[in-house]
């Protein structure tokens, strides 16, 4: 990377503009598309090029993790959900016009504020001289892993004790996050499980109601016959999986 920087000083800008354009363009695609599956596809491309921006900024490990966890895991889950719920009525859903107007106004003003902030600070706007030693110093996976286990190797150079104490690693957040993930795993599995049990009880209760109904109207065989017919009609439909037609 640093070698290329010597050869062609604009490579960073070039790739930045490519990735940023893809990210923002497909972000707009997510916003403006009505088809939920296409939205998911645009989101994949947008987040993938965001990973490219992370690589450009020197955060290789985070970029790879973005590709692996976010794009490869989370978005697959999301698309999974999309496909489970993508019935005909829900694929294309229109938004009310007043919602659009309101959201555009609020979003536009938010964007103005954020951009004003982004370009407002002098320190962020002015480029600094990048010496190649820093550019090539992207081997940050090991310090990252050590920081997650509570050892900060990158702050050792700073000699003040306050820094050494205050930046003593991310072991606690790491453990909290791992427990959080475990809880989420169990919780999500519990919530998304198939509700066969409750359906069965529902059936049972309806059957009990039917029994009560029958007991009450035992003298009226006509009613029962009617019910049986409808019941038969239903049960004739049910076992036929719609997928087995044709």
């Amino acid at each position: 990377m640093d070698l290329i920087a010597v050869a062609w000083p604009y490579w960073h800008q070039f790739f930045f503009i490519i990735f940023a354009t893809i990210a923002i363009g497909f972000g707009f695609g997510v916003l403006l598309s009505k088809n939920v599956v296409r939205m998911a596809f645009y989101l994949v491309l947008s987040l993938g090029s965001t990973a490219g921006l992370f690589f450009l900024a020197g955060a290789e490990f985070v970029g790879a993790m973005q590709l692996m966890i976010y794009v490869g895991g989370t978005l697959v889950l999301l698309i999974f959900g999309v496909m489970l719920t993508a019935q005909k009525d829900f694929i294309n859903m229109d938004t009310h016009t007043q919602d659009w107007i309101l959201a555009t106004i609020v979003g536009g003003s938010l964007l103005m504020v954020l951009l004003f902030g982004a370009f407002g600070a002098e320190d962020w706007r002015t480029p600094q001289d990048i010496n190649d030693a820093h550019v090539s110093a992207t081997k940050e996976a090991t310090p990252l892993g050590l920081a997650l286990t509570g050892i900060r190797v990158d702050t050792l150079g700073e000699s003040t004790d306050a820094v050494a104490d205050g930046k003593s690693g991310y072991l606690m957040p790491f453990i909290i996050v791992s427990f959080h993930l475990l809880v989420v795993l169990i919780g999500a599995a519990y919530m998304a499980r198939t509700k066969k049990l409750s359906h069965a009880t529902d059936d049972k209760s309806s059957r009990a109601k039917l029994m009560l109904f029958k007991m009450e109207h035992e003298e009226e065989p006509l009613e029962e016959a009617k019910y049986v017919v409808t019941h038969k009609g239903k049960s004739a439909l049910n076992p036929l999986d719609p997928n087995d037609e044709d």
């Binding site: 990210a23 923002i24 972000g27 997510v30 947008s46 979003g107 964007l111 954020l114 902030g117 982004a118």
Partner: peptide, 8 residues
């Protein structure tokens, strides 16, 4: 870029 993505 982050701001634009955020607002979108």
């Amino acid at each position: 870029v982050g701001a634009v993505l955020f607002v979108l």
